[in-house]
Design a protein around this nucleic acid. Sequence first.
DNA 1: CCTCAAAATGTAATCCATTACATTTTTCTG
DNA 2: CAGAAAAATGTAATGGATTACATTTTGAGG
Lengths: 340, 340
Amino acid sequence: MVTIEQVAQHAGVSVATVSRTLNNSPAVKAATAQRVRQAIEELRYVPNQPARNLRRNESQVILALAPNFSNPYYSRILTGIGDRAWELEYSVLVCNTLGHANSELRFLKMLESHQADGAILLGCHWDYGWLARFAQQSHIVQCCEYVPDLACPSVSIDNYAATREMVAYLQGLGHSRIAMIGADNQYISTRLRRQGYLDILAEAGLEPRAELYRLADAEYSFASGLAAAQELLAETPRPTAIFCVSDILALSVISAAQELGLDVPGDLTVTGFDDVDYTTIVHPYLTTVSQPCHEMGRRSVDLLLDGLQNGKAVPSERTFLPHRLMKRESAAPPKFAETI
Amino acid sequence: MVTIEQVAQHAGVSVATVSRTLNNSPAVKAATAQRVRQAIEELRYVPNQPARNLRRNESQVILALAPNFSNPYYSRILTGIGDRAWELEYSVLVCNTLGHANSELRFLKMLESHQADGAILLGCHWDYGWLARFAQQSHIVQCCEYVPDLACPSVSIDNYAATREMVAYLQGLGHSRIAMIGADNQYISTRLRRQGYLDILAEAGLEPRAELYRLADAEYSFASGLAAAQELLAETPRPTAIFCVSDILALSVISAAQELGLDVPGDLTVTGFDDVDYTTIVHPYLTTVSQPCHEMGRRSVDLLLDGLQNGKAVPSERTFLPHRLMKRESAAPPKFAETI
DNA sequence: CCTCAAAATGTAATCCATTACATTTTTCTG
DNA sequence: CAGAAAAATGTAATGGATTACATTTTGAGG
């Protein structure tokens, strides 16, 4: 292995000069730098990054913890993170936690052992005391979700506003019997969407009915969506619209409806959330809320590195990025306009 | 920061003893180890991993290069890689190359700079001389794809056999006008699937016709599949079955068919490849070839670490994992059985 | 209780780069 | 051209662990 020492010898300078040349220090004379660069070239020297990092006490690595990056929603955010990190010459360690606390803990310990400089958390659990500790001691940014009272910057959309907008849109189409499929998890997005749904109903003078609010499992699985949909569609009178907190759930509702011979959107309006790829693969194309996933990922990186470089700027700044209502084919006015 | 020295002092031993305790050396007396562990506990000491790695000349990190991990096929393999690495206490740096040569190169350079111990390549490009160099100097494993004459182990399914099986199945259903949508890339899988298709047609005494073989773009995009499908469906006589080299392409064919008022599988049989999640979200459920993605990922890690530990075992061993024909709804006998 | 091998522990070199501080070289001024 | 300031370079300490080798401790056997 070629070391900096050998380069120094070959170029007839000291290791300090080689190091300075490597780091583009202005203190090196152009001619000397040239000689050093040539030596590097000739010996095919590649600096040992870990050695450098040890000395500088940094790793140039950031962690990205996600429950499951097979989920296209997360994978798009991770792509954004990866792209931005690439531009800034950082590496991203992607950690599939599967929502397991011990996975999250083990990955976050890499911060303590100096294997990573900071972490971006996508939809991680926060019921553990140790997370608050990490947030204090390390550089952490939350993406998609955030814990309200955690001193830790976050990037997300305004889930409350987006939900109100969507449900208001459905009301505007003439729907009044609007059901919702939420999810059995503690995410702030889930809570805010539920609140948005309830509030806008209330504002329209509609009593929210318990039988029109169902839960899918924590991971928004297709199967659990199917079950919830079947229950909702068995109600009489049937809801004319179902607002789902994820696109997969919306697809499961469409599937359940078709199973019953119902036409979407003719007999039933269905809306999703996130706007992942497969919302426009088969008809009816899904009416949904589009999140700027890629940008959210990029922003998280910027926020994290800001903190790393300038020493933890604003501790718990909340960044909300704009969402977009994607009006497509799965939502239409109800067949028999109801009177309110 | 707490260092090993402080632990040593606190426990009344030397740094060597602390280090040995950390690494579970049998040379340490049980009582001493106990004292050391207590000191570690009390001082909340966490070893500096980069320092250790520098000394040991390893990083405990492996690279996983993928063209695009938003693609569910890759993301499932990456999940397998991540899971196995997690078990073996390795970290995985996931690199989204987008198929760009300079991205691949920059990531692979992390091997030279000792930031990673080895790399797993998923469907990367191989037209560059430097890749052969890396394969020689570093520990690399190919997953999904492989370059025939590269001395580098690989894990994949037998694409040739799988394709023959699928096309034979279609022939068995009574199809003789079987079209294919391939992809405009140099992957060995693409080549082998094409060859399998051509060979089995030939063996059935059927002249392969150029107008029944179309190409989607290199990334199997939905849009390019749509275009190819439209061309194929405009042929007269129309093919009765279309074999696609990816599930997304198959979905695009179904979409194109429905646009023309054709029923799948009534009027047209469509098959995919890979068996990603969304093959069973809407009807008709896709008949396709299932790849053991998760296991392929896990195997790649094992193969890589074998090489790392035992110093490059079998240089270019090819591992083929079993695939499975998933007979579902999108394939059926042709409506008007043709005579051969 | 002595001797000696085995077991346990310690000392110091090592991994490879960065950087504070010291030293030399260059440049500029009068 | 001397002398001082500025620029360029060098020396050696440093980061935090591992480990070869040296040393001390322990315990068995006589």
